[in-house]
Each structure stands twice: as structure tokens, then as C-alpha cells.
Amino acid sequence: MSDSPTERALQLLALLARAAEPMSARAMAEALELPLSTAYRHLQVLKKWDWVQEHARTGLYEPGPMSVQLAHGFDQHSWLMQAARPELEALSARTGESAGLLCYLHGHIVCLDLVESQHALRCSFVKGVARSTVRGASAKALLAHLPEALVQPLLAEALAESGSLAADDSVASFMNGLQQIRERGYAVSEHEVDQGVWGVSAPVLLPRAQLIATVSLMAPSQRAGKHITEWIQQTCLAADRIRQRLLHR
């Protein structure tokens, strides 16, 4: 048994997740060979953060609201990735470049899936990794379809933390750029996140402009030059085909 308090809490949560029914603190303590007082202490923290909940009448513990939300998010992203994977593979095969599926989650741009090119490409996006950023085609394609109340703090944070945005990249001009992205249906960037990398990103939107994710194609600038128009079109078509798959699942 690890002495790490974090691992003990996670072991309790994992035990409860695998259980077929609610469990008592004593049963969980015995299963994990923990002192009952230790189990109670960790359960109180998990309960405070809504990962577990205690039944008012029986005193038994079961997964809480946060656990349910996590499960819902997993299910949502699972059917999304099932719909997206064939289109990412086809887009990568047609262009010979790297194709990714990204989403916005709690202030981060998260790479859900990535089909990598056989060519060498120095790219910051890695499957499963979250990036807090307002730069690059992927981020801007997502931010363009988020409420302004979410976008403004992200931009302010980026300005405060890095100071890397140029003077003319004011909040007003940035928001104007997002409007242009909404109007044309895709975002492009070059050298913004990774030097020498060109990218295009098209959002996957369900009815009523519900943002699900964005499809991104990334390539070295020197290879992208003569293919830009074609690759923008291919990326937008891939995003639309994913949308159609989701609507008819």
C-alpha cells in the first residue's frame, strides 16, 4: 500500500467505481487494508469535491456528481472519436500530413486524437495533452465559437502571463479576427505555435451552432505552400463529414 495520500484517495475512488453497489466506509477500508479513520478522512475530501456522495439514510458511499460528469464526458468523447477517427485517417492519407481532433475543456485546448504524418513534423500537439492557449488555428477555430464571456478571460490571461502577443494584437482586434473565422468557417495560422508549421482548423458544429470539436491539419510551411487552398477545402469537408456522422449516429 502506497503511503501517498493522493494514491489512497484514488484507490478509494477506483474501488467505489468498480463496485456493483454502494459501499460502507468500513468495507472500503477493509478491502484496501486501511485504518478506518484514514478511509473516513479521504472520503470526506472526495465528498467535499463531489467525487463521492454519502446516502443520507444508509450512510453508504456511491459515485458523486463529479464522477457522473466525468463518465458523461468520456461517453461523449468516445462517440465523437468513433465518428472522427476514419475521417482523420482519410484526411491524413489524402494530404500526407498530420490530422488532429481537438476540443475546448475548462480553459484548455485538448488534443483528443491525432493521426501523425510519416513525415517529420515538430508540433506541440500530442494526443491527450491539454494546452492553455489562444494561439494557432486550432485554438482560434474553437474560441471563435465559444461565448465571448469565456474567450475574454483566456485572452487576458495569455496577455498577462506571456506578454507574447504583439502590441497590435489587442483584445478588440483578436475578437474581430474570431468573427472573421466564424464567417469563413475555418482558421489558418503559420509559425504561431510552432516555428515553421502551417495549420488549418475547421470546427465541427451541430445544430444551433453547438461546438463539439475542431479538425486540424498541420504541416511544415515549406510543404504547405502550393497545397493551401486544397488542404483548407479537405479539412472543412472532413469536419462536415464528422458532423454528418454525429447527426446520424
Results as ranks from 00 to 15, higher is better:
A31K: 02
A99T: 03
L246W: 06
S98E: 08
D50V: 00
A209F: 06
R18D: 03
E116I: 07
E97A: 10
P5E: 14
S173I: 02
K47Y: 14
V68T: 08
V52W: 14
K47I: 09
L143T: 07
S4C: 05
L36A: 14
E62T: 08
A139I: 05
L178Q: 04
E230G: 00
V200M: 01
A56M: 06
W198P: 00
A83D: 12
E230M: 02
L154H: 10
Q234M: 02
V197Y: 15
V171F: 11
L237A: 12
M218F: 04
E157N: 03
A172L: 10
L60S: 08
L60Q: 14
L205C: 03
P63L: 05
Q234G: 00
F125T: 01
G163E: 09
L150T: 06
Q244S: 09
V45Q: 12
M23C: 05
E87H: 08
R57W: 15
P35C: 00
M1R: 11
R243F: 03
S37E: 15
K48T: 13
A120F: 10
H106P: 00
A56Y: 13
I109P: 01
W51F: 10
Q234K: 02
W79L: 12
L46H: 15
R8N: 01
Y186E: 03
T133S: 15
H72V: 05
F174G: 07
A144H: 09
E230V: 01
L15T: 14
H119A: 11
E230H: 07
L36Y: 13
Y186I: 05
Q234D: 06
L32M: 04
V134R: 10
Q76M: 02
G100A: 13
A71W: 01
S67M: 15
K48A: 15
G73I: 03
A31Y: 01
Q11L: 05
A141W: 03
H119K: 07
L70M: 14
G177P: 04
S24Y: 00
S124E: 15
V126G: 01
R135V: 06
T38H: 01
P35H: 01
A19G: 05
L121W: 10
R94K: 15
Q244N: 08
R18E: 03
F74K: 02
Y61P: 01
L155D: 06
A172G: 08
L34Y: 15
A120H: 13
S37G: 09
E97Q: 12
E190N: 09
I212G: 00
E7G: 00
A224K: 01
E7W: 09
A25Y: 09
Y186H: 14
R26L: 13
E157V: 00
S37V: 13
E116N: 13
L237Q: 14
E157A: 06
A99E: 11
E89L: 10
D240H: 12
L88H: 15
H108M: 11
A83H: 05
L206Q: 03
S78N: 03
Y104W: 11
C111L: 11
A149T: 10
G128H: 07
L13Q: 02
L12W: 09
A202H: 02
L112G: 09
I109D: 02
A167P: 04
L206T: 02
E148M: 07
L32P: 04
A120K: 02
W51S: 00
E7F: 06
L178M: 03
D194W: 07
S189C: 08
A209C: 04
A27E: 15
L70E: 14
I181C: 08
E89W: 08
H42A: 02
A19T: 01
A202P: 04
